[in-house]
Amino acid sequence: MMMIIVVVVSTVLGMILSATAGYYICQLRKAKLKAAQEENSFYKDSKEESQDNELELPLFDLGTIFAATDKFSSANKIGQGGFGSVYKGELPDGQEIAVKRLSQGSGQGLKEFKNEVNLIAKLQHPNLVRLLGCCIQGEERMLIYEFQHNKSLDNFIFDQTRRKLLPWEKRFNIIVGIARGLLYLHEDSRLRIIHRDLKASNILLDNEMCPKISDFGIARIFGGEQTGEMTKRVMGTYGYLSPEYAMSGHFSVKSDVFSFGVLVLEIISGKKNWGFYHPEHDLNLVGHAWKLWDEQSPLQLMDEVLDESFSTNEVVRCIQVGLLCVQQRTEDRPTMSSVVFMLSNESAELNQPKEPGFSVERFSVKIESLSGGQTSSTSNDITITTLAGR
């Protein structure tokens, strides 16, 4: 009898324990399911919010970009920059695109990437490259641009053969187009934007050789009346940096003006400022241009491949504008609105330029260079030479 009672009690206790355990397991499963549903709902809402509210451009999926670029094949690689590689691609509808694939070591996070995307999305001007959309998937960050068949300006003006395809008229139009694009960034857009890396390789050319400023990876946005800022991290490209930016980290709209002046002198001469060589002196291109101006022989700066079909006054005016832009003191440099006016009006009175900044290629400041497709810090000596003006 006692044995029967023990068996019954044990059975009942087992059933109670099983039921209790089953109940808690069921409740635990329900809790996990609810948490998963809430997480999925949060992720979905966050994703939708990211697409609808944070990004102002279409999102391309990774599969589409893979197919367009043939899985980023080396045959489709058309460029290499400090923040990643650029590939040519073709969408299913036949539209050609340029895909800027940011390297994972670029140091640009998701927030910064979205800020850059939204910045470029707000910029609409014939002399700025048009951004079609972006791709964000996993660790991938990509910008999709309209494709420019003529690639960048440096492929023409620094090439012994292709620079012959740029007669003076086209070079002048390129100079004016860049000036108008920069004016839009500084004064005419809803935001005040300092590009900080204006150079020949960041000027793209369309089928009609119309220039388009590209690569806003290190651009800075300012609101209100702010026109400049200080930074401890000097970034840019050798030969285009203004003295105040390279030496003290102060950048402003006048830093872009300096870079523009260097670019003007490069377009006119077909020579690079950084790496310029002359057997009679150690000046760089800026210093050489100033020397010729001081000797009243500015036309000697012109690219030797150019024929005689140009206006002497127009060329001299462009050289003078370029020298005004590269003056050492920021307050002496013109604004881009003044630059556009001087280039567009032959009757405009131009000031005589003063000595330029960085007329010799010896650097002694640390600069994080983005030129040549790599990001590196290199020390060289910077010497600011004062030359007598006429």
Rank of each mutant, 00 (worst) to 15 (best):
A121N: 10
N155R: 12
Q80T: 13
N76P: 01
L132C: 12
L110K: 12
I97Q: 11
L102A: 02
Y145N: 02
L123F: 09
N155S: 14
Q95K: 15
Y145E: 04
Q124K: 13
R162D: 11
R101W: 04
V86A: 10
L110E: 10
M142L: 15
G109V: 06
R163S: 13
A121P: 02
N76I: 00
G81R: 09
P92K: 10
G109R: 08
R141W: 08
K71G: 03
S152F: 03
N150H: 15
K77V: 00
Y145H: 13
A121V: 11
K77Q: 09
Q160W: 04
Q160P: 01
H149Y: 08
S85F: 10
Q137Y: 12
R101N: 06
Q104K: 14
E140S: 07
C135S: 07
I120S: 03
Q160G: 13
H125P: 11
G105F: 01
N115R: 13
N155P: 04
S73T: 14
F156A: 06
F113V: 09
F147G: 04
G79M: 08
K111E: 13
V99A: 00
K111W: 06
Q108H: 08
R141D: 02
Y87L: 03
H149Q: 14
D159H: 12
Y87N: 04
V86T: 06
K122R: 15
Q137P: 05
Q80Y: 10
Y145V: 05
K151W: 09
L123V: 08
V117Q: 08
L153Q: 07
F83V: 07
S85G: 02
E116Q: 14
L110F: 11
N115A: 15
N150A: 12
F158W: 07
Y87P: 03
N155V: 03
K88N: 06
S74D: 12
L91H: 01
I78P: 04
T161S: 13
H125R: 07
L102T: 05
C135A: 03
S73F: 01
Y87F: 15
K122S: 15
F156K: 05
V99E: 00
R130C: 10
G79Q: 08
G109P: 07
S106N: 13
K151F: 08
G84D: 07
K77C: 06
N76Q: 02
G109Q: 03
R141I: 01
K111F: 03
R141K: 15
D159M: 12
R162M: 12
L153H: 05
R141C: 04
S73P: 10
G138E: 11
Y87T: 00
Q137I: 07
E146T: 12
Y145C: 05
A75E: 10
K164T: 09
G89L: 00
R141M: 15
A75F: 11
S103E: 05
A75L: 11
S103V: 11
T161Y: 13
Q160M: 07
I78R: 01
G107T: 02
L91P: 02
D93Q: 11
F156C: 00
A98Y: 04
M142V: 09
